[in-house]
Design a protein around this nucleic acid. Structure first.
Lengths: 143, 143
DNA sequence: CTTGACCTTCCAGTCATGGGAACCCCCATG
DNA sequence: CATGGGGGTTCCCATGACTGGAAGGTCAAG
């Protein structure tokens, strides 16, 4: 199975599959012509990775999950711990975004949105008055 | 005013201020020794940028906001449009995260988290089956 | 004179890809 | 047999918005 078929079967772009090989997530064989040769197990792993990524797990989390998946003697608590940590991170990001959303939507409703120059949004950015002293938005930006 | 003082006054790291100059957001003067010389207006702009970034606006949004801020003949509708677009983007991200959160929290509650290897989280990642099983997820999501 | 705190520029790295160049391989058709 | 097209390969560059660090210039104090 060539990379194109593996991409179609797993739902991942070929580029991404090459990258996953580069960082050691998968190890497809090679044909004599140098083409990657994907076995069913490889495609299975790729689909696993695609689903884990879609759930928002980082590449390193995916690596750990794949390791646990392949370890017959794993403990489900290890998987659960990983998932719970990820869940907590998502909760944190949601909270940050909701805090931003609150501030921003207040500002938007305070702004007339007409042809005149007076604007509470700009006033707030210029003065910082009435600021939410909350969220460092780094995690938000990284989302 | 040197960059260190401008950093302290604006709350932005010196590195970030240099970066903002590099991409043309600010244009501090230079002393004869080559040091950047920040006027009050520069520091004011930096603080404006810091606040806009904290609200999650992209650099390009910030550039536009700064332009509007400096344009005495702006229309507040232009500012509002920008802010509304950003708000919509935030709403989209929140919705995405909440959807992830729902799935993930279902999986986490389905996992025993003990010493045994059987794990619904891994099963789901391996097979992709069982997208929305687990009737009780509403209470979890509302948490 | 030296120390140390500043400042400068430039280069590399982050994360998870995506784009594209330059080139190789294989099969089908004229 | 040449050729065309649709695979594949490696390699480098770009993203956003910084951050870290090296190598070196500047300045006030001891």
């Amino acid at each position: 199975m060539n990379i194109g078929d593996a991409a179609a079967a797993s739902g991942l772009p070929a580029k991404t599959i090459r990258y996953y090989e580069e960082i050691g997530l998968i190890r497809p064989l090679r044909d004599t012509n140098g083409y990657r040769a994907f076995r069913d197990a490889d495609v299975h792993k790729l689909a696993f990775l695609a689903r884990a990524r879609r759930l928002g797990f980082s590449i390193e989390d995916c690596r750990a999950l794949l390791g646990l998946y392949e370890d017959e003697s794993r403990a489900s608590e290890d998987v659960k711990r990983l998932a719970q940590a990820h869940l907590a991170e998502i909760d944190g990001r949601i909270a940050e975004l909701q805090s931003l959303r609150g501030t921003l939507s207040d500002l938007v409703s305070a702004c007339a949105g007409d042809k005149r120059p007076d604007c509470p949004i700009l006033n707030r950015l210029a003065s910082g008055e009435g600021a939410d002293q909350g969220a460092d938005s780094a995690a938000v930006r990284s989302a």
